[in-house]
């Protein structure tokens, strides 16, 4: 009971912080915060596969990219498309990509899953470049119109104002994160963890493992798509390097590891740490990635639970936590 109260308190604190940010900060800091939030949602969606289902994806960017390109395309090609339906199209196209690929992806795990996702994201990269008349190729798509938000009985809210857009996107992102969190607490969430820990048992219990995996993949892709879609609106631009480049699949993975595997909220901390780190290094862009990679290596080597484990260690709850960490992710994964 106490634990759950704490969790609600954490959620409330994060929300309160996000909603008061525009009062405290200027446009630049606000943009930074929103950019970080988008990547936090992206990392959370990847974490759904990574921490809860035990699948390491090297190509999660393709779902992010589907969301971004879906939204950008519908806004470019379709006059009068509303804001929410543009986001819906983005999410739906990511889910569609996931569902099309799922018959191939659900059968494998471990390294094969990693390599297969990487192969698919490479194919997507090459395809986006080939259809440059549609996607803008290397130039990407930019400057598409961003429609105002229509709220019945209230009226139009202009999205070209930074503050309005911030409140809107933070709400979408927060809602998505909450739904995802809720998803992990449903009975289906437990199936997910069981698939990771002991897929055979799930089969004995009468659940269809490949089907369940496909559903998880779809959900994860859908939220990655929402993140991509908001990203396209936020930047008012989609570029192939930005959403499908070599680092775009690795960045959320790195966020998950730095934040802490085996927890839901870990990637949020990871993204926060990453953003702050890059910000601190902004005067020396040449060395930023080097420092970033060294942080990743040290986390993997010395702090396998990431920032969350560090926090737990500091609050001297680390023994409890270590047990929790080990039961949560490290034990008994029999999948090959």
């Amino acid at each position: 009971m106490k634990n759950s109260f704490r969790k609600w308190l954490l959620w409330a604190a994060i929300l309160a912080g996000l909603y008061t940010a525009p009062v405290l900060f200027g446009v630049f800091e606000l943009n930074l915060l929103l950019g970080a939030s988008i990547f936090a949602l992206f990392s959370l969606s990847l974490n759904l596969l990574l921490s809860f289902t035990g699948l390491l994806s090297f190509g999660h960017a393709m779902f992010f990219a589907s969301g971004a390109y879906g939204t950008a395309l519908v806004l470019t090609r379709l006059d009068g498309c509303s804001l929410l339906s543009a986001i819906f199209v983005g999410a739906a196209s990511a889910v569609l990509v996931a569902l099309v690929l799922s018959p191939l992806l659900v059968r494998v795990g471990g390294h094969t899953f990693a390599m297969l996702t990487m192969a698919f994201s490479q194919i997507m990269y090459a395809t986006v470049m080939k259809f440059s008349h549609l996607t803008g190729g290397n130039d990407g798509m930019s400057g598409f119109p961003i429609p105002p938000l229509v709220i019945p009985a209230v009226g139009l809210i202009d999205m070209s104002l930074e503050r309005n857009f911030y409140y809107f996107s933070i709400s979408i992102l927060g809602l998505s994160a909450w739904v995802m969190w809720f998803f992990t607490r449903t009975p289906f969430g437990s199936i997910m963890v069981s698939i990771r820990d002991n897929p055979d048992r799930v089969t004995y219990l009468g659940f269809n493992v490949p089907l369940s995996k496909a559903i998880i993949l779809g959900v994860s892709a859908g939220f990655a798509g929402v993140a991509g879609s908001v990203y396209a609106l936020f930047q008012n631009m989609v570029s192939v390097d930005g959403v499908l480049g070599p680092l775009s699949s690795f960045t959320p993975l790195i966020n998950c590891f730095i934040g802490g595997l085996g927890t839901f909220i870990g990637p949020v901390f990871g993204t926060g740490i990453g953003t702050i780190l890059l910000e601190l290094m902004s005067a020396h862009p040449e060395q930023a990635q080097l420092v970033f990679s060294l942080v990743l290596i040290s986390v993997v080597l010395f702090l396998p639970g990431g920032a969350i484990m560090l926090y737990w260690k500091i609050t001297s709850r680390w023994i409890v936590l270590r047990n929790k960490f080990q039961t949560a992710i490290l034990k008994g994964n029999h999948e090959s």
């Binding site: 471990g110 590891f257 595997l261 080597l301």
Partner: peptide, 17 residues
């Protein structure tokens, strides 16, 4: 346990970068 695969992969990613 089995999660060692994830950590090894990430370590090599880190070393690559």
């Amino acid at each position: 346990g089995k999660a060692v695969v994830l950590f090894e992969l990430m370590l090599t990613v880190g070393i690559m970068v």
